[in-house]
């Protein structure tokens, strides 16, 4: 355990990187995933099919390959993020960090899209028909009837997507972002004898983080639950 306690500042900084990757990629993936979902369920058949193909392709690609594409293949064709270099305190956002955020966003947004689509599909058809029957215009039916129910139904799948994103941030450690997995591997490399203690420390922090997200999702779900 000593190696972890002696380097507590490194561990804290590693988890700051993990949290930043999670928060930034999480917000971007929610925004982009929502726009993908809008196209995926919209009335324009061309967009619907194009997004369906895109989402199917990305969802079935391992995240590692998406990261390889942005970190190893991308620079060969001019996709690099060298313009990103922001230093805030001891935290540095460089091109590696940016490439990882983009890869996580690309991957996660497709899952957000599918979660939202599942939410909209969970709204019974009768709800929309009833809304139209009482004379609500399109915007009214959306705002008052369909979307509130769709978002509620989408909370559980979106929560599991975000939990998966938190666990997926560990892959960025393979590509040079010094987040939790990177540190854990470094410690294990230096002190193989203490590997179990190192693993348990990092694993328990992840368990706590996951429990926090799932607790918040539970609260949201309970507060917004549709009374049936």
């Amino acid at each position: 355990m000593n190696v972890v306690l002696d380097n507590a500042d490194l561990v804290v900084r590693a988890f700051i990187y993990t949290a930043l990757l999670f928060v930034i990629a999480g917000i971007f993936s929610l925004v982009i995933g929502t726009s993908l979902a809008a196209m995926r369920i919209g009335p324009i058949a061309v967009l619907r099919n194009a997004v369906a193909v895109y989402v199917t392709l990305i969802r079935n690609t391992p995240l590692l390959l998406v990261l390889i594409f942005f970190r190893i293949a991308g620079p060969k064709i001019g996709i690099n993020f060298n313009f990103v270099d922001i230093v805030i305190g001891e935290i540095r956002f460089n091109n590696l960090f940016a490439a990882c955020v983009v890869a996580l966003t690309v991957y996660t947004s497709t899952f957000v899209c599918e979660g939202l689509r599942a939410g909209v599909n969970a709204v019974p058809l009768g709800q929309a028909e009833a809304a139209r029957a009482i004379g609500l215009p399109f915007a009214g039916a959306m705002r008052e009837v369909v979307l509130p129910q769709a978002f509620r139904a989408a909370v559980p799948p979106l929560a599991s997507v975000q939990i998966a994103l938190l666990k997926n941030t560990t892959l960025c450690g393979i590509f040079g972002v010094s987040e939790a997995f990177f540190r854990m591997k470094g410690f294990t490399n230096n002190e193989p004898a203490e590997r179990v203690g190192i693993f348990l420390t990092f694993a328990l922090i992840f368990v706590v983080l996951v429990e926090i997200i799932s607790f918040m999702a539970n609260r949201l779900e309970r507060r917004w639950r549709v009374t049936t």
Binding site: K167, T170, F181, T188, F199
Partner: peptide, 22 residues
């Protein structure tokens, strides 16, 4: 079940690799 569901597979993989596979 709760523990292994919440821990990233990569951390698990590294522990097993250093314990058994290396």
């Amino acid at each position: 079940v709760e523990f292994f569901r919440a821990v990233p597979v990569l951390l698990l993989m590294i522990l097993i690799f250093f314990s058994y596979g290396i």
